[in-house]
Each structure stands twice: as structure tokens, then as C-alpha cells.
Amino acid sequence: MTTITERPSRRKALTDRARQERALGWKLAGPAFIVMLAVTAYPILQALWLSLFRLRLTDPDSREFVFFGNYQVIFTDSLFYSALLNTLIITVVTVAVELVLGFAIAMLMHRIVLPRRTLRTIVLIPYSIITVVSAFAWLYAFRTDTGFVNEWLNTLTFGAWNTTFDWFGSWAPSMTVIIISEIWKTTPFMSLLLLAGLAQIDGAMEEAAKVDGATFWQRLFRVILPNMKAAIMVALLFRALDAFRIFDNVFVMTRGANNTETLSTLAYKQTIDRVEIGMGSALSVVLFLLVCVIAWIFVRGFNVDLAKGRN
């Protein structure tokens, strides 16, 4: 995403040089622009078009134009709302926890001097693991037959925890594991973005506050946080958009059982499992619009300037 900073106000008064520059710009960026259109605009438009049909891939002859019929089904189906609620819960909880955890880790990485590079590498390890792999690791850790978590909890609680507790047998524990796994996996990403923000703060300001006798918390809330608001908002936006599209963890751990369906797994099910291309496209469009809404809230509501930091 980019923001246009200087829009030429007088269109007519283009000098030869400016015109040539513009032409050169198109020549240079044109091919990339066409490729972008082909790989993003075309699929989006096709999804929009397909979402107006009732179309089953195994029964192409029964293709039928239903207008907004698919959307009507989606917005009247309780499954959509439970998936939306699950997605929102996962987004809010993971992003909130990750912000706090990620900030703590970023502070640590920022301050620590001696094993700085080693520490940064270690912190990044979970993020470098493929999500499906980490999802399987957490799944096996929590399962009753292969898992060790129940055994540990049993030891920690002096035998009070039931070692046969089925984490994936009902909604709340399943969601807990999904959320923990998601947090473990993406906190490093959050802390990296925050670290970049921390690095931008002028050390002199903090020192001045220190000289004036400000405590650690006063410095944190009055100096550090206000000065890295832009970085925090960018980190929150990226992670919120990411978390809202959560798929891998749910797919691997529960496949949507026990009401743990999210919007992405729901769209996947209609499109891939049921080959109901029309309904799946409609769901994808809804998901796309919701993502746009979140981005809009952040950009407009919190005044996030995504170009900041490039100046």
C-alpha cells in the first residue's frame, strides 16, 4: 500500500520534461502494473462474478444465476456468525497478548548488549517455522495419546489435573490451544516490528526524562510509547489482518470441529471440500470486504500513516 503525497494540482501545465518523465515512468512500471492486474485484479473480479452464481464443479450443467442469493444464505446462516465470532475472538486475543509479549521482548532485544545477535536469532525461530508444522507440533503436544502437556499439568498440580483431558474435545480448550499456538508462532513478528519502532526513538529524550527523575513506568508511558505510536499501529494492523485470516492452526488441529470454524476454513470448505464455487467465492468476497474494513478502521480511525518511516 502506498500513499500519494504530492498530487499535481495543475494538470494542463505539464512541461515537456514532466511529460517525458511520466512516459518513462509508465514504460518502466507498466509491465509490473499489468502483471499486478493479471494476478490480483483478475482473480478478485472473477470471484465477484462467480459469487453471483450457484455453481457446483461436479455438476457444471446446473449453473444458475442467483444474483445475491449466496450472500443472503451467508448472512442468514448461524454458521457464518459463529465463524465470524471465532475469528474475532482469535484476532482480538492473539493481537492483544502478542502486543504485550512482543513489546516486552522488543525492549529486551533493544536493551541487551552482549548476546544481542544470538538473542534476536533465538527469538525469531518460531516465526521461521512453517505454520502447518508448528500447528502439528502443538497438536501432538496436546493430544491425549501422543501429548506431554497433560502429564506436565498433572505433575505441576500434584496430580489434580486429569491426564486424559481431551483438549480437542470441546470448544474452549480447542480455541485455547489454537490461540496459544498462534501467539507462539507470531509474537516474534510483532516484536521485530516494535523493535524497529524502539530504535527510532531518540535516546536523548529518554535520558532527559531520566535526569528529570521520571520512573521507568513514567518513561514508558510518557516518552517511549507516544513516540512509537506509528510503529505500534502498523504492527497491530499487520497482525490483525493476519490473524483475521487464520487458517492453518484450525485446519490442522480441529478442521472446524466443535464449533471452531473460522471464516477462512469456512470458505475453504465450501470451495474445496464441497466444490460449491459460487458459495465459496461469495464467502471469500465477504472475507475480503471485512479485511478492507479492518484496514480502513486502522488507517482512518487511528490515523496510521503506512508510509511513515520511509521519509
Binding site: 493430544r143 491425549t144 486424559t164 481431551d166 480437542f168 474435545g169 470441529a257
Partner: peptide
Amino acid sequence: GPSMGVSDETVALN
């Protein structure tokens, strides 16, 4: 069994 809700052939066999 404790994990009946997730039991497939392998879990049942175990």
C-alpha cells in the same frame, strides 16, 4: 474412551 470425540481408526486401535 477419553478421546472418543476425536477417535479415528488409529486412536481406537491405540
